[in-house]
Every structure is written in structure tokens, then in C-alpha cells.
Write a protein that binds this DNA or RNA. Structure first.
Length: 502
DNA sequence: TCATGCGGGCGTG
DNA sequence: CACGCCCGCATGA
């Protein structure tokens, strides 16, 4: 399909197949006759849409690397799931290797409550659930809709927290644990450990050592503590690819195929010592699982056209996305209970200023995370260490109308960039779409957000955003964005379908 | 035990 | 009315 890709290519729009079509999960009629399906994306982030083959197991399972719980949207046709965030150490402690604990919140409410009663294996402080507020202050939501042979997927919001361990990792860990527990030797140990309430760590051998081990070893120990297994903080794979934009994610590699999730992660995960930034490690997470190589092969990511019919854009510009006023502000990280922090936190938002970015250069830059982390973990993040890096991870797409969208640039390698923020109508994608697919879907909702900058804001922008009052008008926002946007289209080019599969 | 889905119901904007 | 969210129930691994 390189050819088809070519056809689009002119517009610098790198879109996944799903993005090439203009549709919204709520449209009465979704595109039919899908000729091309997107490769399954485990770690989607941002306002993205994909169309998977209904035969894809992962799609059938409505799988996501993020811990997503079912949310009743009173619509039997559309399955809605909202992000639970990530479970972290209440003290935000750093493991010996510099990684942080980022556990996958239990989906089951009851199980999650239990989980939160456990303590950090490293410092014994209580674990805390860092809620997701990446969608205008609310959790990021994923929508799944099965239509004949295709599974339509649409995500709204940008995760403002580190990645939890993937489902497969969690399962692997549990399995391993069980196995271990059943062994005689372990029983003894287990008893001992359990008596200590989950504290696992051994003084002498900090997690780090374990980290280098595959789950076979380390996990078990952690497992004893139950979920206290230190996730590698998002493994920070060495970025094979220097491409700054790549950071965008992952993984996606994740995506790769319907392969078992396990593949992605676990084996690829490397525990890499990370700087003691705040949760920056998160970034790594993005890279986390997939193998880059595979990623690289993947074509495209694309700017999406925002499909968000919801009002995501309406109230608060999603633009702010993670950084968004809401979420970013969230200070929620405060000790338990506090999740609303963000509401009150607005004032402090400024605190994270730009420079604070903590992420690693390469991937780090997940725009979204940054601010959030900063707020949440001022200590860590605020450090100057952060690399202002800056290169913003987002691409800016200026539509004919003045809409600008910052898209995370995904390297060509990443097939579908997870993070895309699109502007509904006028993005280049649209044009593509039109070209490609005519207005077959009149229903599509395009506009609400038009004009709204849905994308994530580059770091800098993000900061600005943070500083902005929530109430600030979008316009204002937009202006700033423009001025600051740092991502040139160069990125766009780099992402073009690489090869063009499409 | 949990993950998942479903659907009733409630509060809010 | 759209959403977010809580809760219980059922099913399956």
C-alpha cells in the first residue's frame, strides 16, 4: 500500500488507517468495507482512533496496556472503558536502580482496594493510586465498537500518569508467583514475608538486582507483596532510535500484533536505571515494550482528526490535554484521598515550568506526563534536571482553518502514533480523508472541536497551559500554542508512511 | 480471585 | 441528555 500512502502523503499527514477515515465512535454509521485495518495498539494515548480487524484477539478483548475499567455508558453498542491510572509508591520513592514502582491497578474495585492497602516494597510507605485525569480532568476513556468485521477503537484523553505494568506483565508475574508459592522453599519464605506485611525488599538486594532478571526471579519476590512489584519503571529501553519523536510511544509497538501481550513487555523490558527524576520514567514506558525494530517497520502514525465527538474539546480544550489545566494541575497526587487535588491545585500549576521536564530526552518527552508529574511529584520533577528538552514531541499541524494540532510525532517507526491529537475538521488528515474517502459519512461529527487545539501541548506549551487559567479561552490558548510550538513539520515527514504500507 | 461485561441508578452540568 | 461513576450480578479463566 505504499501507493495509497503516497497518495496521502502530500499532506504530511501520517495517519493510521483508522484515522484516514473520518468517523466518530458515536456515529450512527461507521465506515464499512474497511480495506485496511490498523495494527493493534496496546498503549494508545491521546485522541486516537483505530480500526482493527475483528479477528484480532486483542481487539476482541478490548485490551489495553493501561488499566481500563468498564464504564457504563448506557449504550450497548459501544463499550466504554475509563483509565484507572497507576499505583505508585505514596512517597514516590526511587528504587535503587532509579526506577519507580508503577503497578497496574486492579480492575476489580474490590481488588483495587486491597491493592491500595499494600505497601511499597521499597520504602514501606503505602501505595497510592494515581488516578488518570487526562481527559479534561476525567480519566482517559477508550471506546470499542464492533461492526461486522471491524472493531472501531477511539480513545479520548492523554494519560497524565506513568504507564502501569501491562496486563500481560501482571499476569506473568502472578503466574510466576503462584508457581513459586507452590514450591516448598517458597512456602517457607512466603510465610515469613507475609508476616511482614508485604515488605519485600531485602536490604541487601534491592530491587535493582532483580530487575535485571526476568520476571522469573524478581517478580516473585515482589509478588509476595502482591502487587508491589516494582515495575520497571517503565523500562527504559535504550532507545534504539534516536529519534526524538519516537518517544511518542511505544510501543506500540506494541502493537505489533495480536501477539500476545506478553511478548511485548516482559521480555523486552529492561530495567534501566533512571535518573531520579520524578516519574519521568514514565517516558520510558512508552518505549517500553515493544521492540523498536519492529516498530520501525511499522508505518505510520498519524495525526488524527479528532474524532472526539464528545465534548472533549468543548469544555476544555483537550489541547491542554494532559497538561491541561485540569489534569495537569492535578495535584492529586497528594496523599490519598485527595484526588481532587487538581481542582484546587490550579494555582500551583505554574510550578512546573517548562524547564522542569523530566523526561529523558528521548522519549521522554511525553508531553503529557511531564506536567503532571511535576505537579504530582514536585520534588522529583521539578528538578532542573529536567530536560527541557524540548523538542517537543508533538507535531504541529496547521490546518487550513487555523486549527493547530500538536501531534506527537511518531516516528515512522511507530505505526500508529498513539498520541495524536487532532483537530477535527481541518487537519491535513481531513483533506486526506476527503481525498481518500469521500464524504461517505456525513454523519461524522467533525466539528465540535474544530478550532480547538486538541493536541497535547509541547512541554513548553504545556507549562504555559498549566499556567493558564482553566477558564482561559481557547483562543488564548491557541495563540500561545502557535508561538511556542516547536514541532516542525519535519517531523511530519519523518513519519510518513514509511514505506508505505498504506 | 479477578478480569470483564452488562445494566440499573444517581448526581451533575 | 450526555457523562461520570457507583453498585450488584453473571460469567469465565
Amino acid at each position: 500500500m505504499s501507493k495509497s500512502a503516497d497518495s496521502f502523503d502530500d499532506s504530511d499527514c501520517v495517519c493510521s488507517f483508522g484515522m484516514k477515515l473520518t468517523w466518530d465512535i458515536n456515529d450512527p454509521k461507521l465506515p464499512r468495507d474497511i480495506k485496511q485495518y490498523d495494527t493493534f495498539q496496546e498503549w494508545t494515548d491521546g485522541y486516537v482512533r483505530f480500526i482493527y480487524n475483528s479477528e484480532d484477539k486483542n481487539a476482541q478483548r478490548h485490551l489495553s496496556g493501561w488499566a481500563m475499567r468498564n464504564t457504563n455508558n448506557h449504550n450497548y453498542q459501544i463499550l466504554k472503558k475509563s483509565c484507572l491510572g497507576v499505583v505508585v509508591c505514596g512517597r514516590n520513592c526511587t528504587l535503587a536502580d532509579g526506577s519507580k514502582i508503577q503497578l497496574r491497578p486492579a480492575i476489580c474495585d474490590k481488588a483495587r482496594q486491597k491493592q491500595q492497602k499494600k505497601v511499597c516494597p521499597s520504602c514501606d510507605s503505602p501505595l497510592e493510586l494515581m488516578p488518570c485525569r487526562g481527559h479534561s480532568g476525567y480519566p482517559v476513556t477508550n471506546f470499542w465498537r464492533l461492526e461486522e468485521k471491524a472493531v472501531f477503537f477511539q480513545a479520548k484523553g492523554v494519560h497524565d500518569h506513568p504507564r502501569p505494568e501491562s496486563k500481560s506483565e501482571t499476569e506473568t508475574r502472578r503466574t510466576t508467583l503462584k508457581r513459586r508459592m507452590s514450591s516448598p522453599q517458597f512456602n517457607h519464605k512466603k510465610r515469613l514475608l507475609e508476616s511482614e506485611v508485604g515488605r519485600i525488599h531485602d536490604p541487601g538486594v534491592p530491587f535493582p538486582s532483580l530487575q535485571h532478571l526476568s520476571y522469573a526471579d524478581g517478580p516473585d519476590r515482589f509478588s509476595l507483596v502482591e502487587h508491589s512489584f516494582p515495575l520497571q519503571a517503565q523500562p527504559y529501553p535504550p532507545f534504539p532510535n534516536p529519534d526524538p519523536y519516537r518517544f511518542s510511544y511505544d510501543p506500540a509497538a506494541v502493537a505489533t500484533e495480536p501477539v500476545s501481550p506478553l511478548q511485548n513487555s516482559t521480555s523486552h523490558r529492561l530495567y534501566v536505571p533512571r535518573p531520579p527524576y520524578g516519574y519521568d520514567f514514565t517516558m520510558p514506558s512508552y518505549l517500553g515494550s515493544g521492540s523498536y525494530a519492529s516498530l520501525c517497520k511499522e508505518p505510520c502514525s498519524a495525526p488524527m482528526v479528532e474524532g472526539d465527538s464528545s465534548k472533549a474539546g468543548a469544555g476544555l480544550p483537550p489541547s491542554q490535554h494532559g497538561a491541561a489545566p485540569l489534569s495537569a494541575h492535578d495535584c492529586g497526587y497528594a496523599p490519598p484521598g485527595k484526588h481532587q487535588g487538581w481542582k484546587t491545585a490550579l494555582g500551583r500549576v505554574g510550578h512546573g515550568d517548562r524547564g522542569d521536564y523530566v523526561q529523558t530526552p528521548s522519549g521522554s518527552n511525553h508531553p503529557y506526563y511531564n506536567s503532571e508529574y511535576l505537579y504530582r511529584y514536585p520534588g522529583g520533577a521539578s528538578g532542573p534536571t529536567a530536560s527541557p528538552t524540548a523538542t517537543g514531541p508533538l507535531q504541529t499541524v496547521i490546518t487550513t482553518t487555523t486549527k493547530v494540532s500538536y501531534q506527537p510525532c511518531n516516528p515512522a517507526a511507530v505505526k500508529y502514533g498513539d498520541n495524536f491529537y487532532d483537530v477535527k475538521s481541518a487537519t491535513s488528515c481531513d483533506s486526506l480523508q476527503e481525498a481518500d474517502s469521500p464524504p461517505s459519512y456525513p454523519d461524522l461529527k467533525i466539528s465540535e472541536d474544530s478550532g480547538v487545539i486538541k493536541s497535547a501541548i509541547p512541554y513548553e506549551q504545556e507549562s504555559l497551559a498549566a499556567k493558564l487559567e482553566r477558564a482561559e479561552s481557547l483562543e488564548a490558548y491557541r495563540c500561545r500554542s502557535y508561538s511556542s510550538y516547536s514541532y516542525p513539520e519535519r517531523m511530519l515527514h519523518s513519519f510518513k508512511y514509511d514505506g508505505g504500507e498504506y
